[in-house]
């Protein structure tokens, strides 16, 4: 491997991946984020290159890929960039989630050195209903409802965009559908949910959730980069537990509330605080089991979750 580009590198996940790749001396690591250089220097490990790039601007993306990426001979692109605040919607957010993914895929195809494109997707792309499987395989139906929030629709569209590129381009594309990552500043809705003193949950429902630690997410991304296999992979976590257990292990109080009240209550909370948890985004995961079948990732990538979350998660 001659080098790796990491978008969204200033998140804890991106920084941890950069540190891991540096530790394994996997060639130059080019980190990309929107933060100023000084801020990025605080979170990124030593020895990595950093580029401040606004991925919502096509010109910036082109300059990145045909500039530093080509110069460094990057062989793998790890696309982690996503908006961290679920309350934000609109064209700019869509451009970051979907258009930037599409453009980076297209341009990566034009760079001879790039052989692998790893796209981080989410368990939220799966259609989670009572008539669907409790354990999602990679071929499970996707959430294509037009009534789904933009946060979900964007993720599905980016996921499908990456999938559509498989076999049609030169670059091998790996889509990693990750379980909910429990970490701050990565756009984790579960983190935000468990950060509240009281976690409101639908009365009478206690679904199974799957939680991914940063260490396991890094291991999965690294496996995808080094293996270079294309395809869709579910990336499960080492913690599969009922929602109520996650709340208890986080040291929070669970307050069961009738489902119809949860939407307004969490909207009110988002309006008066800096919490971005959205009930409409997570409604199905708070009602029905949402566990990933990670057998394919184990067979092809050799990835198996081995790092459980340390409960209570720090800061949660």
């Amino acid at each position: 491997m001659s080098g790796v580009l990491i978008s969204g590198a200033t998140t804890p996940l991106g920084a941890a991946l950069a540190a891991d790749l540096r530790a394994h001396d996997d060639g130059p690591v080019l980190c990309v984020g929107v933060e100023a250089d000084e801020l990025a220097a605080d979170v990124l490990p030593a020895g990595v290159d950093y580029q401040r790039v606004d991925l919502t601007r096509p010109r910036h993306v082109r300059s990145l890929l045909f500039g530093p990426v080509r110069r460094l001979g990057v062989s793998a692109v790890v696309h982690l960039a996503a908006h961290r605040d679920a309350r934000r919607e609109g064209g700019r957010v869509h451009r970051l989630h979907v258009d930037a993914t599409r453009l980076m895929l297209r341009l990566a195809d034009d760079l001879p050195s790039v052989r692998t494109f790893v796209h981080r997707s989410s368990v939220l792309v799966y259609k989670n209903r009572t008539d669907q499987a409790d354990v999602f395989r990679e071929d499970a139906p996707l959430e294509l409802s037009p009534r789904a929030p933009q946060w979900v629709r964007d993720r599905v569209e980016a996921d499908v965009t990456a999938c559509a590129h498989m076999g049609t381009g030169r670059v091998r594309v790996a889509v990693l559908r990750c379980a909910e990552l429990l970490a701050p500043d990565v756009g984790s809705q579960l983190w935000d949910y468990l950060s509240g003193r009281v976690c409101l949950r639908p009365a009478g429902f206690d679904p199974m959730i799957e939680v991914l630690s940063v260490a396991d997410a890094v291991a999965a991304l690294r496996a995808a980069v080094t293996h270079g296999a294309g395809g869709v992979f579910n990336i499960g976590g080492a913690d599969v537990l009922p929602l109520s257990s996650a709340i208890r292990l986080s040291g929070r109080d669970a307050l069961p509330v009738p489902g119809p009240l949860l939407g307004p209550l969490y909207r009110l909370r988002a309006a008066v605080s800096d919490r971005s948890f959205r009930y409409d985004v997570n409604r199905h995961l708070l009602h029905f089991n949402g566990v990933l079948d990670g057998r394919r990732a184990a067979e092809v990538l050799g990835y198996r979750p081995t790092h459980p979350v340390t409960w209570p998660a720090p800061g949660a």
Binding site: D134, V135, D206, M208, V240, L241, P242, N289, V291
Partner: peptide
């Protein structure tokens, strides 16, 4: 048991 005393189905 997936680690917390439950299987994937709960």
């Amino acid at each position: 048991d997936l680690g917390h005393g439950y299987d994937a189905y709960g």
